[in-house]
């Protein structure tokens, strides 16, 4: 069974046809990069899997979106907050809460009704370690998250996403606002995290897609043009449009 699957998904923002019949399967413990020019539908596609598009007025979705074989839009009793426990998300701009480093990571646990102090402390430490941030913050957990650098804030957001133990992590250009050192740390982290999670990442950086992903999907004007092993996409893509995009000739 595939971890994630979309079957003939169409998405409309009012009259605008943003996704046109996307069918794609993703295996567990893989990193899938979504690439394509701005406005091609890749972020919209990413947001399908935690139902973030539902928040936008005038959105209409057709087709099936499956997580662990269950249709996340049409399964009775599947609540969005339950879904988001399984599917974490990291955004382009680090967006820590105006709270301490510790409370940022503990937040997801607390809103899910967990109050056991030792359990929370343990989970915060584990999540910060998984996000490769523990060593840098272990002595200042009570300090404001805003005191951290941009790269540290982004890793804090990753720790926050991991704290609720999702099985899928969605990342929307997670390193585009970071310097090369922080970017390298995030990329290294993605590589480590795939042992435990299934990761889908939107990126405009071709080299980043090449470095971190197993599979790459190229979107153009709302269509999935090509989906293949990353090596194939970057060395011998089948579709001329993919070739033109990855070689920087359009998009």
């Amino acid at each position: 069974m595939f971890k994630i699957e979309s079957k003939n998904v169409h998405l409309y923002y009012n009259d605008f046809h943003a996704l046109k019949g996307i069918s794609m399967t993703v295996k567990s413990n893989t990193v899938t990069a979504l690439i394509g020019p701005s406005g091609c539908g890749k972020s919209t596609f990413l947001r399908l899997f935690n139902r973030m598009n539902d928040l936008i007025d005038g959105v209409k979705i057709e087709g099936e979106v499956l997580l662990d074989g269950k249709d996340i839009y049409n399964t009775k009793g599947l609540r969005t907050d339950e879904l988001r426990k399984k599917v974490g998300m990291v955004f382009q701009k680090p967006n820590p809460f105006p709270k301490s480093i510790f409370e940022n990571v503990a937040y997801g646990l607390r809103v899910n009704g967990i109050s056991h102090k030792n359990f929370i402390e343990e989970r915060v430490e584990t999540s910060l370690k998984q996000a490769a941030l523990w060593e840098e913050v272990k002595d200042k957990l009570k300090k404001s998250a805003f005191e951290l650098s941009g790269g540290q804030q982004q890793r804090l957001c990753i720790a926050r996403a991991l704290a609720i133990e999702p099985s899928v992590v969605l990342m929307d250009e997670p390193a585009s606002a970071l310097d090369p050192i922080s970017t390298a740390k995030i990329e290294e982290l993605i590589y480590e995290l795939k042992n435990k999670y299934t990761i889908m990442i939107v990126t405009h950086n071709m080299q980043q897609a090449g470095r971190v992903s197993d599979m790459t999907a190229f979107f153009y004007l709302g269509e999935l043009i090509e989906y293949d092993h990353t090596q194939t996409i970057f060395t011998n893509p089948k579709d001329p449009k993919t070739q033109s995009y990855v070689t920087g000739r359009f998009g």
């Binding site: 071709m206 080299q207 090449g210 970057f234 060395t235 011998n236 070739q243 070689t247």
Partner: peptide, 9 residues
């Protein structure tokens, strides 16, 4: 330039 695809080849 990190060439890719046909450029890399």
């Amino acid at each position: 330039f990190n060439p890719l695809a046909i450029d890399l080849r």
